[in-house]
């Protein structure tokens, strides 16, 4: 039997919104330690890895590991039926071919349940190597979203260049060019407004705007985003979920011809 109850059900709605652009279907791996999901998009350019720790749920029971393969478009349809202040419970029997979502209003006066068919997905699990990154940038997630949105008006790609002084985002296209520079700025009133750069050596990498914009669907999940970069390895864009886990995206850089 698997059962996970989240009083802050809106969080689950936001997690789904943050991945459904990139993935049509994925397997939620449920274990005693929590729920995880790892999947590449169909073109194998980006990878989503997320983890929701069991202790972040208000009730969590997982007698044995279960893999819940879901069509995420269908899951999103069901999640839209939950209000933002609903308590959400996910339930599945061992070896079941369906999953049940229960939505309760805070006053318990309305309880809805939706049963969804599971899919048998041929999921291959990937080992993600530990990497010492040349540059790690922490910045406000809304700022990153804004920059990705603005520069995608200019071109298809964004060059992210990081030095000790700051980080620069650049785009070029038929209409001209755009550059956004952010200086390191740790002395701010609110921690979430800080721009912090940990640099071993400067890097400059090119990434597709389309994917970066998809990643920023996770913005409502965290006030800060962390970008980890090294030459010729995938960019990691991480949103930490408070007391719960993370949503991470990996993106292969564009290569100079």
């Amino acid at each position: 039997m698997f059962e996970a109850r989240l009083v802050q059900g809106a969080l689950l709605k936001k997690v789904l919104e943050s991945i459904k652009d990139l993935l049509n279907e994925a397997t939620w791996e449920c274990a005693a330690t929590g729920i995880s999901l790892q999947a590449m998009d169909s073109s194998h350019v980006s990878l989503v890895a997320l983890n929701l720790r069991s202790d972040g749920f208000d009730k969590y029971r997982c007698d044995r590991n279960v893999s819940l393969g879901m069509n995420l478009t269908n899951m999103a349809k069901i999640m839209k039926c939950a209000s933002n202040d609903d308590v959400i419970t996910i339930k599945a029997q061992d070896d079941a071919d369906t999953v049940t979502f229960v939505f309760e209003t805070p006053n318990q006066e309305k309880i809805s349940d939706y049963e969804m068919k599971l899919m048998n997905l041929d999921t291959e699990h990937l080992g993600i190597p530990d990497t010492d990154y040349s540059c790690i940038v922490k910045m406000p997630s809304v700022e990153f979203q804004r920059i990705c949105r603005d520069l995608s008006q200019i071109g298809d790609s964004v060059v992210i260049s990081c030095t000790k002084e700051g980080v620069k985002f650049s785009a070029a296209g038929d209409l001209g060019t755009g550059n956004v520079k952010l200086a390191q700025n740790a002395n701010v009133d609110k921690e979430e407004e800080a721009v912090v750069i940990e640099m071993q050596e400067p890097v400059s990498l090119t990434f597709a705007c389309r994917y970066l914009n998809s990643f920023t669907k996770a913005t409502p999940l965290a006030p800060q985003v962390q970008l980890s970069m090294s030459s010729d390895v995938p960019l990691v864009v991480e949103y930490k979920l408070e007391d719960m886990g993370y949503v991470r995206y990996y993106l292969a850089p564009k290569i100079e011809d």
Binding site: S43, H125, G127, A208, Y250, A252, K254, I255, D257
Partner: peptide
């Protein structure tokens, strides 16, 4: 110009 790289090869299939 640039071409989009892929993730295959960066991660090992377990």
């Amino acid at each position: 110009s640039t071409t989009q790289g892929r993730l295959d090869g960066f991660f090992k299939v377990l």
